[in-house]
Design a protein around this nucleic acid. Structure first.
Lengths: 202, 202, 202, 202
DNA sequence: AATGAATGAGTCTTCATTCAT
DNA sequence: CATGAATGAAGACTCATTCAT
């Protein structure tokens, strides 16, 4: 049982490459097919249409990303550590897979509202993960009890997303992972209880 | 001497309406022209191309927005107050002009990389404004002296932008301005010096 | 030894159903296969191509139709009776098999010229049958001896075909068989020997 | 005021030529455009889509045809003469415009049901014209008073349409107009008042 | 300055057919 | 005989932009 759905995966990988290079609109289906080494029509055996390639790609990658983070989170005791882990994973994944970073930070946004809604559905699971961390922090008394979950989540995601986008638009010239500490510190300070301050991340 | 370039302004306003309603890609130039009450060709007397309408619209609005914020900032003494003013203006402008909020938070993003670069050029001035506030805070000793300007700016902009986008995608159902205090607090805590805490905004 | 070529027949019947429901162009081979309970490829073991399904279907049904009419005709003495029998059989078959009626009156026509020629080849046998009746009528002195065989045949076929098509396009709302008498009468009057009739056209 | 809507007419004429030569499905819009000497997009300023070209073409030609027949009919006194005029005009128009004959007899039929309905709407006016003649014949006592209008109309149209189609499929080898007399005679005999004729069918 | 009729480039998707198993 | 995954050709239509008036 090697290589389940080999064509599906090949097409996804081809799509990441072509979209990263050309941009979503200029990424013709026929180019993706050629890159994947399949016929144009084969794409439509696995995907409903071009948009569905983008959605599926994002869902696939995001699913793996979330799974990996969940595993890493298991060992962590404090909310601060958990948040650190999240940011670290977020940045390191983008840092490792440059083409996927381009797709996720730039091309995924260039879509119409309907598609955007479907993208948000996928993103939701990630946002839930952030919520869980914040909630955990409040529950353990590590974070202020009057912390607004939604705002905290939006601050976390908004910040790392903006940093990632800037990094991509600057041609990924610097090492994204080196920012993890500072970003974590910046975020955590807003959440923490006012009377106890320390830097506790690894 | 009022009504300078009346058609130019009419087209901009028409573009905001049509793009907010239909989305950027579905907003045909001919529809914008009809909405503005001019001929299709007339648009090209004032704008180089369709993208230029979007850019110009953003530049125009952003210019006014920045000007207004600068005025408001003049009276403020502390960096915290200044940041509060910025967030408040940001949210209240979007809250007031719902159609522009849609254009700026959703449609402006659906553009190719080249256009995106030009949008960033316009945005830069706004980001500079944020930088100035952060810098001021550090200079006055209100903020930590080791604060990374770029990260601080990305946190501020990333947070308020994410909050605004979520609000738009949720059909602007709640009052954006009511979030100003909480957001400001959340942000400022990360910047402040560790030994002196207070809530100082109006 | 019943059920000869069971798949062949199943495919034909499935084709009638799917084509009647969807129309010829929208009736994908894969849908016919599914309806017949066979694999797509199996169809090509029995038919050369999609057009061949339509032709074969028509040939099969038309063959049975002609055979049945020939049997009914045997007992009839006069050309008038024979013509009556033909019209009656024509209408009653369509009346009985509504889906086939749709295929034959509407979908069979939506084909390109080459296919149309092959359909006409099948139809030819039916037209020959009509010719035989006309010829018989002339031979027995029942019809005018100067009757143009070809025109008579075209009048007979054109009339009943037009009536059938109208009936199908009107959603087969009325009983086609009830028209047999009137149609027969209308047709026969043009063929019959006349005692004394003027020719009044210019 | 010369040549109203010159492009519209050019496209119609080009469509007749290309469709007659290639068949409707093989008649690419771009080929019609080239033949008409306009850009592809120009077609869509005058027609909603490819189907609309076919419909408009038919409506245009049929309109002129009906108008012409109506003029010819005015001078005729008897229903028989009127019917003769109709058949004569029908055949002579097809005989004159060979390409249009191909379009009308073959290509117009190769369309899906929805389009067919719209074609029938145009055809209806022609069928009404036939109805008027039949009605006139009955009113003046020239035709049997128990004549079924609908059947008579279907016999007339079915017959001349079948004759015309056969003629086209036989490559228009013979002179269609030479058949007018015989066809007229054949038709009229079924309609006329009879002195004494038995009904002999079962 | 203003018009609006004309242009024409550019691509996703379907589905009949094949052939290795 | 039977399967069904894979193939790949083919074309209508949109709409930003131009330019003669």
């Amino acid at each position: 049982m090697k290589d389940k759905r080999p064509k599906y995966k090949k097409i996804i990988e081809a799509a990441v490459m072509v979209i990263a290079e050309k941009g979503y609109h200029a990424a013709q289906v026929s180019k993706i097919a050629k890159q994947a080494g399949v016929a144009d029509g084969t794409i439509y055996l696995y995907f409903k249409n071009k948009d569905d390639i983008l959605i599926s790609l994002f869902r696939e990658k995001m699913g793996m990303h979330i799974e990996k983070i969940r595993k890493c989170l298991e060992g962590k005791k404090t909310a601060s550590e958990k948040l650190y882990t999240l940011v670290e994973n977020h940045f390191s994944q983008l840092n490792k897979d440059r083409q996927y970073a381009i797709v996720t930070q730039l091309e995924l946004r260039q879509t119409n509202r309907e598609l955007r809604q479907r993208i948000n559905l996928v993103l939701k699971e990630y946002l839930n993960l952030i919520d869980e961390i914040v909630e955990y922090g409040v529950r353990t008394g590590e974070f202020r009890e009057d912390l607004d979950f939604r705002l905290a989540r939006q601050m976390i995601f908004g910040t790392i997303d903006e940093i990632a986008t800037t990094w991509v638009m600057n041609d990924q010239k610097y090492d994204l992972v080196s920012l993890v500490s500072s970003v974590h510190e910046l975020l955590i300070d807003g959440f923490r209880k006012r009377d106890a301050l320390s830097s506790d991340h690894p």
